[in-house]
Nucleic acid binder design. Structure first.
Lengths: 346, 346
DNA sequence: ACGTAGATAGAAAGCGCTTGCTATCGAGGG
DNA sequence: CCCTCGATAGCAAGCGCTTTCTATCTACGT
C-alpha cells in the first residue's frame, strides 16, 4: 500500500492530527515536533492523498480553465497566464493549485459537460475564456450551471466573454466592437471603399461584436457594406472565404478577417490569385498573435492584451485582486497599423 | 448544503449503494429502479462528489499533461490531441476524464513539483511532453518520481522525449537527430557550405539531438562546422542569435534554426540586415507548426506529427492502444522543402 | 505556592462515496 | 412441495484526511 498520514504519524511518534497540522501549517506545532514530522514525511516519501484531503476539508486546489482550442495561441496565451497566477503563495500548503484546462472545441454542450465535471471536482475556481454561443437555450443552461457552481463556492471569471446575468460571475470582456470599428475606420481612412469581411462562426458573441464594429464604421462613413462570409476561426476558413469573396466581388481592395489566423489564410489565397499585399489588396486581422508581426508583410491588426487579461482573470479567481466595479470590465484593443494595409490603387 | 448521494437515495426510495451502482453502471440494477434513481438525480440536480468518489474507489479521472509552454502551439497541439483521446467512452461513469495541463516553463523543478501534485491527486495517467533537461541530478530525481508514480498505478507516457530507464514509462520519442541531419543534408545538397546554427537551450535532449544531427551531416560531407549559438525556443532568441551569427560569420549562406518559431526571428533579423531570403541566405526551421507554411517565403522545415503523437500518447495512457514493443517508439520527422531554402549565390 | 491562561498534542467524529458480504424474492429442478 | 440458484437490493465497514473538542503541561502573576 501507499504511505498514509497514519504511517507518518507512527514514525514521527505523534498523532495523525499533528501530522496534518504540520502539513497544512494552519495550527501551532512545536518546532521540534514539526521537525520530526517533516523528517518522517521525507523518509517515507509521503505524498498527501488529495481526494481524501479535499473530501475532509471540503475544498480542492483545482482550478478549471475552459478554452475553445488549446492549440490556438489565442487561448494558449490566456491559459498560460491564468496558470501563472493561480499557483504560487497564498492559501494552504504552499498554495499549489492545479490548472485543469478543458478543450471545448467551441461546442456549447461540451462547455456544459466540462462545467459539470469541474463542479464534481469541487473546483476552487473556473475561468471561462472565449466568446459565448448565442443560443437562448444554451445561455439559460449556462446561467443555471454558473449559478449553481457559484453557490457551491466556486469563483467564476469570464475572460474575453460578455457577462452572464444573475450568476455573480465576474466578466472581463474584450472590446471587440470598438476594435472592429477602428480597424475598418483605418481602412476607410486609407481610401478603401470595397472591403470584404471574413467573419467568424455565426451565433457567437465575438463574431457578432467584431462584425458590428465593422458595420458601424461603414455606416458612419456612408459606405455600403460589401461581401461578408462566415467561417470558423482557422486558416483554412480564411483561405476559402477569400476565394469566395474574390468571386463575389473581384474589385475589392481590402479584406478584414475575423482574426489573425484567418487573415493568414486570406493572404495565402490572395497570393495564389496573383494579388499583391498590400499593393492590390490590403489585409487586416484581429488579436495580434505573436506570429502576426513576422508574416510578410506584417499584419495590421487589433492587439488584444491576452496575457494581461488572463493573468488578471487568474488573480481575480484567486481573490488576489479586487473584482472590477459592477463585476465587469471592458478591455480595449489597440490598433496596430503595419505593412499589410496601404492606400488602394488609384 | 449541497445534495448528496443519500439525498438522491431517499428521494428514489432506495439505498445509497443502489444510487452509486446506477451512477457507475457496474452492477446489475433493475430497469425500473434505475429509472427512478435517474429521475431523482435529475430532479435534485445532483452532481457526484469527485473527491469522495476518488477516495472510496481509490481511483481518479484526472489525467496530467506536462508541457513546457502552453502558449506555444508545439505543445498546444500535443496537449489538445491527448485531451481528445482521454475523454470519451471506456471506464466508469461515461468515462469522463479531465485533463490537467501543467506549464513547467521548461524548469526541471517545476516539472517535479507538478508530478508530485499529480501524484497527490492520484492521477490516472500522466503524459509528459517536451525534451528532458540533461542534468544527472534531475534525471535521477525524475526517474525516482516516475517509478513511484508508476507503482501507485499511474500510467506514464513520455511524448517527444527519450525513455527514462527503470520506470516502466512508455516513450514516444521524436527522431530529432535524424530530422536535424536530413535538414542539413538538404542544405548541403543545395551547395551551402557556411551554415549557421541556432540551437535551443543547452542541456536539453531536444537541443542536443537536433544539433548532433546537424553535425553528423556536416561531418559526413566533410564540411567544417560554422558558428553555433544557443538560446531559448522563442522568436526573440532567433532574432538575436541571427545578429550574432552574422557578426561571427558575415559570409554564411544559410541558417538552421532550432525550431520554426526561432526561424521566424531569424528571418526578421535577416531582412532587417537587408538580406533576402532565400536569395542571400537560406533559412530552415523544425517542427512545421501551422504558420510555417504561411510565412513568406514558406519555411523549409522538418514536420513532426505532433497531433498524431499526442493522440497516440493519449490512447496509450488510457490503455486503448497497445504499448510499443520495448515500451519505446521513435517517431520520424519528414523534411518539408519549401521556399525559404535555395542554392547559395555563386 | 496556587490558580490560570497559553501553547501543544491527541481522541474521535465525520466528509460522501464504494463495495464485499448478506438478505430477500421468485423461479425452476428433483 | 422443498431446495437451490440467479437476480437485486441493502448493510455497514471503511477510504485517508481534517477539525472540533478535550487533555496536558508549562509558565507566570500575585
Amino acid at each position: 500500500m501507499t504511505v498514509t498520514l497514519a504511517d507518518v504519524a507512527a514514525r514521527a511518534q505523534v498523532s495523525p492530527a499533528t501530522v496534518s497540522r504540520v502539513l497544512n501549517g494552519n495550527y501551532p506545532v512545536a518546532a521540534t515536533t514539526r521537525e520530526r514530522v517533516l523528517r518522517a514525511v521525507d523518509e517515507l516519501d509521503y505524498v498527501l492523498n488529495g481526494p481524501a484531503s479535499a473530501l475532509a476539508a471540503a475544498t480542492s486546489d483545482l482550478v478549471g480553465i475552459l478554452v475553445n482550442d488549446i492549440a490556438d495561441p489565442f487561448f494558449g496565451i490566456m491559459a498560460g497566464a491564468v496558470q501563472s497566477e493561480i499557483g504560487g503563495p497564498g492559501g494552504r500548503a504552499g498554495g499549489e493549485r492545479l490548472a485543469v484546462v478543458c478543450n471545448t472545441g467551441g461546442s456549447s454542450e461540451r462547455e456544459l459537460t466540462y462545467l459539470t465535471l469541474l463542479q464534481r471536482q469541487r473546483a476552487a475556481a473556473v475561468v471561462i475564456t472565449g466568446g459565448a454561443v448565442e443560443d437562448p437555450l444554451h445561455a439559460e443552461a449556462m446561467a443555471g450551471k454558473l449559478r449553481r457552481l457559484g453557490e457551491a463556492g466556486t469563483r467564476i471569471v469570464l475572460c474575453g466573454r460578455p457577462p452572464v446575468q444573475d450568476t455573480g460571475a465576474i466578466a472581463l470582456a474584450f472590446d471587440n466592437r470598438g476594435g472592429g470599428r477602428r480597424l475598418t475606420e483605418h481602412l476607410l481612412d486609407l481610401g478603401h471603399r470595397r472591403i470584404g469581411y471574413i467573419a467568424g462562426p455565426e451565433e457567437r458573441t465575438t463574431t457578432r461584436h467584431r462584425l458590428e464594429g465593422h458595420r458601424d464604421a461603414l455606416k458612419a462613413a456612408g459606405v455600403d457594406e460589401c461581401a461578408t462570409v462566415h467561417g470558423p476561426y482557422d486558416r483554412r476558413s480564411g483561405y476559402e472565404a477569400t476565394r469566395e469573396l474574390l468571386r463575389q466581388d473581384p474589385d475589392l481592395t481590402a479584406i478584414v478577417a475575423a482574426n489573425d489566423t484567418v487573415a493568414l489564410g486570406a493572404c495565402a489565397a490572395l497570393r495564389e490569385a496573383g494579388l499583391r499585399i498590400p499593393e492590390d489588396v490590403s489585409v487586416a486581422g484581429f488579436d495580434d498573435l505573436p506570429f502576426s508581426v513576422d508574416v510578410v508583410p506584417a499584419l495590421t491588426t487589433v492587439r488584444l492584451p491576452l496575457y494581461e487579461a488572463g493573468a488578471r482573470a487568474g488573480r481575480i479567481a484567486m481573490g488576489r485582486e479586487a473584482e472590477p466595479p459592477g463585476k465587469m470590465s471592458v478591455i480595449a484593443g489597440e490598433l496596430m497599423v503595419r505593412g499589410s494595409t496601404a492606400r488602394p490603387r488609384t
